[in-house]
């Protein structure tokens, strides 16, 4: 298996990453393009502000809940190139925030996030991201939607669409090239969304509960489809899910987020050979593992 090259450079590595602001919706705009702006270190809530060394204190404002809660505390982990990682955890455990940090929409308070051994000033545009809802632009056709990341990287619309058109076959989208998103089924829309993430050009893909809105049968189809795509492309995938079965079926390793603040990820290897099928999950070892996972998630809920 290719994942045991511990001595090489990890595709993704967290070095003592701490983060305490789970609702940093606005930080994205600041992170982009205003790097030397005096307001760069501005945080809208004073409790956080005081934590930033050297910043002046202002008069206090009411704090929203969780705003100053530490979410990640010196978090460390590494993901090897080509690995398929599933991340599970209850709502509010920081799964989505983890993705915001990796995509560059949020910045860690301390620590470093390395891609292939390199730290970047901003991670925006460095990884492919497939959001929970397909988030296709309703006024663009399938081809034009998938071409979006290429256009944003400077390709002309025509050449971007030509590149996309060549790829459609591999993604099973050739017959819907000129359809608009509302004409497609949920599964097809997710395929377009996945193609768009792939075209961001990164070999690291973040998938945020991509199949959670699909019906059970489509979902199974899409999981198998994703496995094929992953095998073919040899990309590194991080996949958030709520579903333990889905995680066991897809992942090489499962990261469990179950404690706040997160100091360490529960890192569980899935002892299943590939190719896998739905029946693979019925072997006793897997059932025991599933029990163990559910137990981990349940302890969080009790507290």
């Amino acid at each position: 298996m290719m994942r045991n090259n511990q001595h090489g450079q990890a595709a993704l590595q967290f070095n003592n990453v701490s983060f305490r602001y789970p609702t940093a919706e606005t930080s994205a705009a600041k992170a982009k393009g205003r790097r030397n702006h005096p307001l760069r270190s501005f945080r809208p809530f004073p409790a956080i502000k005081t934590a930033v060394a050297g910043s002046q204190t202002t008069k206090s404002q009411p704090l929203p809940t969780h705003a100053d809660q530490l979410l990640f505390d010196s978090l460390q982990f590494r993901v090897e190139a080509g690995e398929f990682i599933c991340i599970i955890g209850p709502s509010g455990s920081g799964k989505s925030t983890l993705f915001k940090l990796i995509t560059g929409l949020s910045r860690p308070e301390t620590g470093q996030i390395l891609l292939h051994g390199t730290a970047h000033d901003s991670l925006l545009g460095k990884v492919g991201y497939m959001p929970q809802h397909d988030l296709l632009l309703p006024w663009r056709t399938v081809v034009a939607n998938a071409a979006l990341p290429l256009e944003l990287k400077g390709a002309s619309r025509k050449e971007a669409e030509q590149r996309v058109t060549k790829l459609l076959g591999q993604f099973g989208l050739e017959h819907v090239a000129n359809s608009f998103p509302w004409e497609l089924s949920g599964g097809m829309r997710q395929r377009v969304s996945f193609l768009r993430a792939v075209l961001s050009g990164s070999d690291i893909l973040l998938l945020d509960e991509p199949f959670s809105a699909l019906d059970a049968i489509t979902r199974l189809e899409m999981q198998e489809w994703l496995m094929e795509q992953w095998k073919r492309r040899r990309t590194t995938v991080l996949f958030i899910t709520h579903d333990v079965d889905e995680a066991l079926f897809l992942a090489d390793r499962i990261f469990v987020l179950h404690d706040t603040p997160v100091r360490q990820l529960h890192d569980i290897s899935v002892p299943l050979r590939r190719p896998r099928n739905a029946a693979s999950l019925h072997n006793p070892e897997l059932i025991a593992l599933k029990q163990q996972l559910l137990e981990l998630l349940r302890t969080k809920v009790k507290r």
């Binding site: 919706e25 994205a28 705009a29 982009k32 393009g33 995509t103 560059g104 929409l105 925006l124 545009g125 990884v127 991201y129 959001p131 809802h133 988030l135 632009l137 979006l148 990341p149 944003l152 990287k153 961001s200």
Partner: peptide
């Protein structure tokens, strides 16, 4: 939608884009 805006940001979109 702000979700779309964030998605575009992850693709390195600028203010003009």
């Amino acid at each position: 939608s702000s979700q779309l805006r964030q998605l575009l940001l992850t693709m390195e979109a600028g203010r003009r884009d």
